[in-house]
Every structure is written in structure tokens, then in C-alpha cells.
């Protein structure tokens, strides 16, 4: 294949993003290890490094997981998503360093091979960390657009949903490991706050997606015609036909014509520009055509039309 992957190239915003990541990581590790060796002169450097790297990666994972729902709650956070991949790869690098240092520190130079030692180990929390690291590795390794294309977006998306599995494993890794050794309740509190933030943002984003927005009185939509509504930056054409209402994307799949200015002809939404047609319930062009536009959940309550501004069929 002679495909090149240059869709997202280096540019000013991306460089700035990476500088901020690098500064954050250096600041965190510098403070943790630097201040740590002053406050705890007895602690060995390896311990401070292992702890600094592990907590930095875990913190970064919280940031990575929070960006998605944040952008759904408020689109102004979108620039944080733009280069989330680099955030993910940075997180993996820190986690990998933590894992390898731990493996060397706690399992090397013994009577068996370090990985064998890890799997025989009695405390169990380290195996959970290892499983999470394997997942994070798969994700970091396939993060390039090359893999998105070659694995197909569906498989890729599924693979990347595993990050939630990794997150659960890591909460267990920390709770069954460090939190059992440490005595300070503040540490339990910090992990609990982290879990609540990640879970809370996801629930809030789901609720916002499920929310219905009032469009207008049904009576205001002429039969076989549409009104245009704009919510959260999405433009939606709401049609009335045969005593039903349907909501589809306003943007024609041909050249972006305004479907809300079209009309239902022979049971199909027909674009005012070049006449492409879509079934109002599914957004699909009638066979043999294969074009498709997004459709939105819609209902009528007390004579008012309500639409869920999140499309039912995502392109992925």
C-alpha cells in the first residue's frame, strides 16, 4: 500500500501542547523526588523514583480519561482533546518506567527469572499492575493513524475502550498495594476523589447526551417540511410527515446542502441543492444508494417536539 499518514502534522498548537505536557511531568517528578529526598532523607532513591513515576502515570491517566466527557459537557475543552494521543503515550512511558523499575527492584537477581517471580508473588497487586501495563502498551503501540486504518475504526475503538479495564485494574493495584502499606487516610481520600471525578464526569456527560431539548410546537412545522435547530454546535433538521416527526443532520452527504430547506418527496427527505434523498427514520438513502446522514432521537410531548442533540449513529 502506498498510503501516507500525514493528516495531523506538526504545528504550533501541537508543539505548545507537548511543551505543557513535558513541563507538567518534569515539575511533578522534580518535586516528588527532589522534595521527597529532603523530607525523607532515609528513603532510597529507587523508592522515590518508583513512587514518583507510578503516581505521575496514574494522575495523567485521570486527566486522559476526563478530557473526553469534559469536551462533551463543554466544547471549549476540545483543544485538550486535539493531542490527547501524546498525553496517552506520555502516560504509558511513565507507567512503563515505573513497571520496569519495580520489576528490577523487587524481582531481579533472585533464584528465578523476574517475570516468573512476578507471577508467583504472593501480594497479588503487582500482577494487576502488569495486566494494566499490557493493555496500556497495546493502546500506545496502536495509537498511530496507521493502526486506526488497518484495524478498522470499529476494532480500534473497541481496543481503546479497554482503557477503562486498565483503569479498574490500576485502582485495584493501588488500593491493594500502596494503600495497604500506608497509614495516612489523606491518601485513600485522594484516590477516592480521583475515582469520583472520572466516574462523575462520565455520568454527567451521559446525562447531557440523553437530555431532550425543546424545538418548537409540532403545529409550527409544515407537513413534509422541516425546521432547523442548533444545539451544542450541531445543526439538526426536524421534519413532520404522516403524523410523525423525524430529526436528521442538516448537512447533506453530497455537498453539504441544507436539508432543513428540503422537502419530503415520495416519503424521502430531498435535498434542495441536487436532490439527494434520505429516509427520514434512518437517514439512509433508499437502495441502491448508500449515502447516510446522522439521525437524532426525537419525541412529541404535549404538542412540543423534543430532540436529543446527540446523534444515534456515530460514524464509528
Amino acid at each position: 500500500m502506498s498510503v501516507t499518514y500525514a493528516a495531523v502534522q506538526w504545528n504550533g498548537q501541537k508543539k505548545l501542547y507537548d511543551w505543557v505536557i513535558a513541563a507538567g511531568v518534569v515539575l511533578y517528578l522534580g518535586l516528588f523526588v527532589g522534595l521527597g529526598s529532603v523530607v525523607h532523607p532515609q528513603a532510597t532513591a529507587e523508592t522515590l523514583l518508583i513512587r514518583g513515576l507510578g503516581t505521575a502515570a496514574f494522575l495523567l491517566l485521570h486527566v486522559v480519561l476526563s478530557i473526553g466527557p469534559l469536551t462533551r459537557l463543554d466544547r471549549r475543552f476540545l483543544p485538550l482533546l486535539y493531542n490527547r494521543r501524546h498525553l496517552g503515550v506520555t502516560m504509558f512511558t511513565l507507567a512503563f518506567a515505573h513497571g520496569v523499575f519495580s520489576l528490577v527492584q523487587f524481582h531481579a537477581l533472585g533464584d528465578v527469572f523476574p517475570l516468573v517471580s512476578l507471577f508467583m508473588a504472593p501480594a497479588r497487586f503487582e500482577q494487576l499492575g502488569f495486566a494494566a501495563l499490557v493493555i496500556l502498551f497495546l493502546m500506545a503501540a496502536t495509537s498511530h493513524d496507521f493502526w486506526l486504518k488497518n484495524l478498522t475504526p470499529r476494532v480500534w475503538k473497541r481496543l481503546h475502550m479497554l482503557v477503562y479495564g486498565a483503569y479498574v485494574l490500576l485502582v485495584a493495584h493501588v488500593s491493594l498495594g500502596a494503600l495497604r502499606s500506608e497509614r495516612n487516610p489523606v491518601l485513600v481520600g485522594i484516590v477516592a476523589v480521583g475515582v469520583c471525578v472520572v466516574a462523575g464526569l462520565h455520568v454527567a456527560a451521559l446525562v447531557v447526551r440523553r437530555r431532550y431539548v425543546e424545538v418548537c410546537e409540532v403545529a409550527r412545522i409544515p407537513e413534509n417540511r422541516a425546521v432547523l435547530m442548533k444545539v451544542d454546535g450541531e445543526k439538526i433538521a426536524v421534519f413532520r410527515h404522516d403524523g410523525k416527526v423525524s430529526a436528521i443532520s442538516n448537512v447533506c452527504a453530497h455537498q453539504g446542502g441544507p436539508l432543513s430547506e428540503g422537502k419530503i418527496v415520495d416519503g424521502c427527505v430531498t435535498c434542495p441543492w441536487h436532490g439527494y434523498q434520505y429516509l427520514p427514520e434512518t437517514g439512509a438513502s433508499p437502495p441502491p444508494f448508500t449515502e447516510k446522514v446522522a439521525v437524532y432521537p426525537v419525541k412529541v410531548e404535549g404538542g412540543k417536539v423534543m430532540v436529543q442533540p446527540c446523534a444515534k449513529t456515530n460514524s464509528m
Binding site: 518535586l31 516528588f32 521527597g36 532515609q42 528513603a43 500506608e182 495516612n184 489523606v186
Partner: peptide, 19 residues
Amino acid sequence: LLVLVVTLSVTLVVAQMPF
């Protein structure tokens, strides 16, 4: 986020068990 980075690292350093 940078404020979080500073407060969290300092808190964790101080909250660790003594060595």
C-alpha cells in the same frame, strides 16, 4: 492542572509514611 501537579506532589511527599 499545573496547580494540581504542585499540590498533589507536595501532598503525596508529606503524606507518605516516615522511613
